[in-house]
Design a protein around this nucleic acid. Structure first.
Lengths: 146, 146
DNA sequence: AGCCAACGTTGGACGAGCCAACGGTAGTCG
DNA sequence: CGACTACCGTTGGCTCGTCCAACGTTGGCT
């Protein structure tokens, strides 16, 4: 691997984009064998942590478009990891509920993703990983409210 | 903005992917007004730092496919920022050379990208930025050689 | 001479993120 | 009550970045 230009390697934006490609591939490769998808984990995590919610709310929480949320929820319902029911109090909405099988699936995906973190952050010590995640969180939060 | 699930926010892979979307948008938005492209900067930076090179070598350095390198070099040649000439010693190759105008363009894009870094890392102090870039570099390098 | 590898070029596949439009529902205001 | 507006889910499609396959040309090897 020939070295990239110094000017590029000093730009955080370039480092992030390049690393993101690797991270994304690690994630999809790790989750594909069990018939999963990166977004499945996010939706299940949101349902588990915040309880049943409308598709709109889920999409806002995990930061994806409502049309994509629709497709992900379809998958989860098909696989028995979530249930979709119309909201009796507001029939415009669907209420999505996580099932017991869904909680099991969430745990499975969580374990898989933890291994992905290990592969991704293998070059860092545990302390550095925490530092990295902390800095990254602040960078991301600084972007979200604009 | 509703908060994302804790499980997601603790995963470096998710943070990186999400931040990458913001970084990429900041980059393209900043570079579009001058008729540029993120990859233009990379190719020019490689030519400036390592001298004239084949398209293959450029692509390997900045980590993009040769077909995409082809398109980027086309742009740069059209705009007068680079020149493409067949290699007299190996006629399979093209030798790409940066022009004086190309060096000026590189400086312009570099200034623009520095402002992008400021927007992206606005939440971090100068010392934290250096730390962040250092950690990110190690993470990326750990992925490249696999 | 014959075979294989390298390079540039072209075309296209694939997924992620995003947007527009529609029907159905709820809330609001005259 | 009726009209208007806003919201949600659903469907379809657009754009861009990344990647791969195939081809013709050229060079190296035996």
């Amino acid at each position: 691997m020939r070295t990239a230009p110094t000017r590029a390697r000093s730009k955080a934006s370039w480092l992030i984009n390049k690393t993101s490609v690797h991270a994304h591939r690690l994630l999809t490769d790790a989750v594909a064998p069990v018939g999963g998808h990166g977004h499945h984990f996010l939706v299940l995590a949101a349902l588990d942590e915040f309880g049943a919610a409308s598709q709109m709310e889920i999409g806002q929480r995990i930061g994806i478009d409502r049309s994509d949320t629709h497709a992900i929820v379809n998958d989860l319902v098909e696989q028995g990891f979530a249930e979709r029911a119309p909201d009796p109090e507001d029939r415009r909405r669907n209420i999505i509920t996580i099932t017991d099988a869904g909680r099991g699936r969430l745990a499975e995906l969580d374990r898989i993703l933890e291994r992905v973190q290990d592969k991704l952050l293998g070059a860092l010590s545990p302390g550095e990983r925490r530092q990295f995640v902390a800095l990254l969180t602040r960078v991301l939060d600084g972007q979200e409210d604009r």
